[in-house]
Design a protein around this nucleic acid. Structure first.
Length: 273
DNA sequence: GCGACAG
DNA sequence: ATCTTGTCGC
């Protein structure tokens, strides 16, 4: 599957090289520690000029089964601690960039950035203080997954949430599951993802006693792994944290509501809500 | 060389 | 990502 399509097999290699360079360039701007003005949990007295974490965003995309190039991107914002959705927005579009493992950002980041930018341009009061992304952060072959990519470009704290493990540095899905099973008795729900190199890429996380299958949390941008896990914990009603789950549900519903019309009129992919 | 490979 | 109903369990 060629990335550029017409130039034969060599072009895809050249494109991947470009993409890799771009990732390495952006990675220099990555901040992997807490770098935000708000407080995670309420202190005895809120320091002056400080605020609480209240608005958590989530992004996800769904795809048409008839035409896999037709996609719906969704951005939601939830209010803490109620977990009520206070904002949602969609973008229906055709994608021309293929999915290549390790390069998801080049397919999904542009439209997601657009949705964020629109909120910022509108000075929307619900602009998220932190964003959960349906894809990994530094848990990535070059330590720069979609969550990092979005975070750096939007200059926004982000958390990577994967529903499947990207096998990196010897990390193994079944080993992780077994480790979590062992710790289940201890009511332990988090396990560090330590690779062969000794580096901690993220954590495997299983909400309370809910499901056997973990999710994989990693640092996106301007946040520490500890804080990322705390925030995921605060927003987990089910296996997938609510911001991402809501973006998933709503993007799928929006797509189904509009795909009949999409298949009829091949032209207008831009429409008002 | 072969398999694995976020969404 | 998507194809897919009922069903077992709390």
């Amino acid at each position: 599957m060629d990335v550029e399509g017409a130039s034969g097999e060599s072009s895809s290699g050249a494109q991947l090289e470009k993409w890799t360079e771009e990732q390495d360039r952006l990675k220099k701007k990555l901040i992997a520690y807490d770098d935000f003005p708000w407080e995670l949990s309420s202190p005895i007295e809120l320091p002056q000029g400080s605020e609480m974490l209240k608005y958590v965003g989530g992004v996800d995309m769904s795809f048409s089964k008839e035409d896999s190039s037709v996609a719906c991107a969704c951005l939601v914002v939830l209010e803490l601690p109620s977990l009520r959705v206070v904002h949602h927005d969609f973008s229906l579009l055709r994608l021309h960039v293929p999915y290549v493992p390790g390069f998801l950002a080049f397919r999904e980041a542009p439209v997601l950035l657009q949705l964020l930018q629109k909120m910022r341009d509108d000075q929307n009061p619900f602009y998220p203080q932190v964003l959960m992304v349906d894809g990994n952060g530094i848990l990535h072959p070059r330590g720069f997954g979609l969550a990092c990519h979005l975070g750096v470009l939007a200059d926004l704290p982000t958390i990577g949430v994967g529903k499947n493990l990207h096998h990196v540095d010897g990390l193994n899905q079944s080993e992780i599951r077994r480790s979590l099973q062992l710790k289940e008795n201890e009511n332990e729900q988090v396990i560090n993802l330590v690779g062969n190199s000794g580096f901690t890429w993220g954590v495997g996380f299983r909400p309370a006693l809910r499901s056997l299958k973990p999710i994989y949390i990693s640092v996106g941008h301007r946040i520490s792994l500890d804080s990322a896990v705390k925030i995921v914990n605060m927003t987990c009603k089910y296996r997938v944290p609510e911001p991402i789950r809501q973006a998933d549900i709503r993007s799928r519903a929006y797509l189904q509501k509009h795909q009949l019309r999409l298949l009829k009129d091949l032209e207008p992919l831009v429409m008002a809500d």
